[in-house]
Amino acid sequence: MLLRRFGLTGTIFTFFFIAQEAVISQLSFPAGGFSLFLILTLIWAALSTPDVAAAVGFGAGILLDLSPSTNGPLGHWTLILVLMSYAIAFFSYGDENMRGNPLSIVLMVTLAQAIALASYLVTGFLLGVTATSFSQTLITIAGNALWTLVVTPLLLPVVVWLHDLTFDSRMRI
């Protein structure tokens, strides 16, 4: 059972990672665009227990760190996504008002995505990764948040279905 869940989760995340790198990265969106992979990770975390969310965040972070377009050191995104996934699951787990409402999940994912990007930037600064100008950073974070707000409602039913398929559960959203 554990092996099946692990295999399915790995396949889903790898598929989305390839889709992000091969398709989304090639399209020019206004104001920076969005990360399909990051949205998937955060929705998945919002639907999982904190333990599972942290483990999934670790795996997703490793994949994101291995992306050639990532400029930070290996482990940078891993650290951010472990903490962010755990936090998002910790706040939503057990709260059916939060989990049962798609609007709450969309808003939570958007906020978490913006915080994740800002955290990545701040920790990157501490680790010596050169960042762009403050105004450009603000535009990128705000643009990403806006795109996430648009894309998450479209992606949410798919992720919920995949999550149910993986964990043999019936999530009501």
Binding site: D51, F58, P73, L74, H76, T78, L79
Partner: peptide, 28 residues
């Protein structure tokens, strides 16, 4: 406790990876 232990292990692993990368380990 088990959940917190897992979280700590994952955070330490991430920091370990960052350290290895910043030290220029070729495998990474």
């Amino acid at each position: 406790n088990r959940g917190r232990l897992l979280l700590v292990i994952l955070i330490v692993s991430s920091l370990f990876l960052i350290t290895l990368d910043l030290r220029g380990v070729n495998v990474l």
